[in-house]
Amino acid sequence: MKAYEYYAEVLPDGHLSIPKGLKDKLKPDSKVRIMLLLDDEETAWNNFAMSQFLKGYSEKDAIYDNL
């Protein structure tokens, strides 16, 4: 199985866009596996919180890593 990653647009009829270069690789009866990754506010907030949390880590705190 080959994997291709690209950003798609949701078209007005609810279908997803497929880049021409990739569309040319598909046969009309092709079976594909789709995984949707949606950006949301919660993901952005979690990423921000994690980055801020790690900024508070000091090398002096490493003594607690082996307890």
Rank of each mutant, 00 (worst) to 15 (best):
A3V: 15
K27W: 03
A3W: 10
E42C: 03
H15A: 07
I34T: 08
A49K: 15
D29R: 04
N47P: 01
M35P: 02
E41S: 13
D24Y: 07
F53R: 13
G14N: 01
Q52I: 04
N46E: 13
Y64K: 06
A44Q: 15
K23A: 08
L22H: 08
D13A: 05
N47M: 13
M35N: 12
S30T: 11
L11I: 02
L36M: 12
E42W: 05
L36W: 06
A8V: 00
E9S: 09
M35Q: 09
G56P: 02
S17F: 00
D65A: 13
D39F: 06
F53N: 05
Y4L: 14
Y64A: 07
E59V: 14
L26I: 04
A49C: 09
L54E: 11
P28Q: 06
Y6L: 04
E59C: 06
K25N: 04
L36Q: 08
T43W: 07
G21P: 01
V10S: 00
K55V: 03
K25G: 00
K2V: 12
I18F: 01
Y6T: 02
S30C: 09
E59D: 14
E5F: 10
A8N: 00
D29F: 06
T43I: 11
D65G: 02
D40C: 14
D65M: 11
D40L: 05
M35G: 08
L38N: 06
G14L: 00
F48N: 04
K27V: 03
P12S: 04
L38A: 07
L16S: 03
L38D: 04
Y4V: 11
L54S: 14
A44G: 11
Y6M: 03
P28I: 00
E5S: 14
L26Q: 05
K31S: 09
P28C: 02
K2A: 13
N46Q: 15
D39L: 09
N66A: 15
L67A: 14
R33K: 11
L67G: 15
Y64M: 07
Y6N: 02
P12L: 01
L16M: 05
D39W: 07
L26F: 10
I34R: 05
L36T: 07
D40R: 08
F48K: 06
I34Q: 05
Q52T: 07
E42T: 07
S30E: 10
E9K: 12
V10L: 09
